[in-house]
Design a protein around this nucleic acid. Structure first.
Lengths: 145, 145
DNA sequence: AGGTCATGTAACCAGATTCGTTACACTGGA
DNA sequence: TCCAGTGTAACGAATCTGGTTACATGACCT
C-alpha cells in the first residue's frame, strides 16, 4: 500500500458507471470490478460527487450514475477531484534567509513546479472519459477476436 | 513532514554549489542554507553523484562541486536523480479480469499516466540550473535595491 | 605517523499518508 | 416495517518521509 492510486480508482469507477449507461451502479458492484472494498469506492464517489461529476442515491434502489456525458468528463477533472496536491513539494522548513539561495529559491521553484504540474494536467485535460472507454472497448474487441 | 521535498532540496543544493563556482562546499554549509540536517544533504548529494551531476571529496579539504556547467544541468535531470517514481499510481491490486473495464483499464491508464508524466518532465527539461540561478540573482538584486 | 575533518551509509524514530476494514446512522422503496 | 443501499467516522497496518545518532572510511596537514 505504498502510493496514491485514487486517480486510477476514480477513472475505473467512472468507466464502470459509463458502461452502465444511466443505470445506477452500487458501490458493491463497482468494488468487485476494482477489486477493493466498497467503502473505498464510496469515498471516491463522495469526492466525485462534491466535484459535480457523479450523482448518488440512497435506498434499496440506490447507486451512482455519471452527472455528465463521458465525452464531457476530462481526466483532469477526475484528477483534481481526488488528488488535491500531487507532485514534488517545496521545502517543508523555510530555508535560511541569510543565504542568497535560501532567501529567494522558494518562489522561483514554486513557479517552476507550478508550470510542470500545469503541463501534466494539460496532458490529462486532453483525454476524456469517452476516450478511455473507447480504448477499453477496442481492447476488449481485440481480445474477443 | 508530509510530502516529498527531495526535488526542492536537490535544486537548492545544486544552486548553492553553482554559487560556489568550483570551490567545494561541505554538507554542513549547504545544510545551513537549506535549513536541514547535513545527513539529509549528503543523502541527496549521494543520489546526485550516482547520476553524475556532482562530485565529492572526503577529507579536511573535502566537499562537493557540480560535475557540469549549470547550463548543462536540467531540472529534469535533478528530478530523475532524486525522485524515482512520482505521480499517481495505478491499481495496487489488479482489478477484476471478469469485468470488461477491469480487464483492460490498466494498460490504457498506464499509457495515459505515462504521457502525463512525460509532459511534466518536459516542462522541467526546459529549465536549467543556470535559469534558476539567474532568477535567484535577479530577485536578490531586486531585494537589494 | 597521528590527528582532524568531511564524506558515506546504516540504523532508528516520529509524523504523515495510504488503503482496507468495521461499525453505525441515515434514507428510500417494497 | 424491513431491507438494501449510501455516507462517514474510527481504527489499524503498511509504507514513506525527513531528522537524528553513530560510526567506518578516506584525505589532507603538521
Amino acid at each position: 500500500m505504498s502510493k496514491n492510486c485514487r486517480f486510477a480508482v476514480a477513472v475505473h469507477v467512472c468507466a464502470v458507471l459509463a458502461m452502465n449507461e444511466g443505470k445506477p451502479a452500487t458501490s458493491d458492484e463497482i468494488a468487485r470490478s476494482v477489486n477493493t472494498n466498497p467503502v473505498v469506492v464510496r469515498r471516491i464517489l463522495s469526492s466525485l460527487a462534491k466535484a459535480g461529476l457523479v450523482r448518488s442515491w440512497r435506498g434499496s434502489t440506490g447507486g451512482s450514475v455519471l452527472a455528465r456525458e463521458p465525452a464531457d468528463i476530462s481526466l483532469r477533472a477526475l484528477f483534481r477531484a481526488v488528488d488535491d496536491s500531487e507532485g514534488p513539494a517545496l521545502h517543508n522548513q523555510p530555508p535560511n534567509p541569510d543565504c542568497p539561495v535560501g532567501a529567494h529559491i522558494v518562489p522561483v521553484l514554486g513557479s517552476i513546479i507550478g508550470r510542470a504540474e500545469a503541463a501534466r494536467e494539460s496532458a490529462l485535460a486532453g483525454v476524456s472519459l469517452a476516450d478511455v472507454l473507447g480504448q477499453i472497448r477496442s481492447r476488449a474487441a481485440a481480445a474477443a477476436a
